[in-house]
C-alpha cells in the first residue's frame, strides 16, 4: 500500500485516496473552438510511461482535494506531491 503525502493533510495511506489519471492532460478551454484531433487527444490518448509519471489523486476520505503525485510507475517510488495549482518539475 502506497504512502502518499497529501499537501494539505500530510502522509496518509493509499486507502484514503482515489486515482485520477494523467495530471498533465489539459482540457481544451470551454467556449472555444477545438479541432477534432485535439479533442480526441484530450479525451482518449494517454501515454503509459514506465518510470516517472505525474498523476492526479483525490484525497477522497480526507480533505477531498485533488492533488498531483509524481510516481514511478514501475517501482511505485513517489518523488513529489503538490497541490494542483502548483507545478511539478
Amino acid at each position: 500500500m502506497l504512502y502518499i503525502k497529501c499537501p494539505y493533510c500530510g502522509l496518509r495511506a493509499q486507502k484514503e485516496f482515489s486515482y485520477g489519471g494523467d495530471a498533465t492532460v489539459k482540457r481544451p478551454n470551454i467556449n472555444e473552438e477545438v479541432s477534432s484531433e485535439d479533442w480526441d487527444n484530450f479525451v482518449y490518448m494517454r501515454k503509459s510511461p514506465r518510470g516517472k509519471h505525474i498523476e492526479l489523486w483525490q484525497h477522497i476520505a480526507g480533505c477531498r482535494q485533488w492533488i498531483k503525485v509524481q510516481r514511478d510507475t514501475a517501482t511505485h517510488e513517489i518523488f513529489q506531491t503538490a497541490k494542483v495549482t502548483e507545478e511539478i518539475r
Binding site: L56, Q58, I60, W66, V84
Partner: peptide, 13 residues
C-alpha cells in the same frame, strides 16, 4: 461529487 470537485479544483479554478 468527485466529478464536480475535479472541474472546480483543476479545470475551472
Amino acid at each position: 461529487l468527485s466529478h464536480l470537485e475535479y472541474y472546480l479544483q483543476i479545470v475551472w479554478p
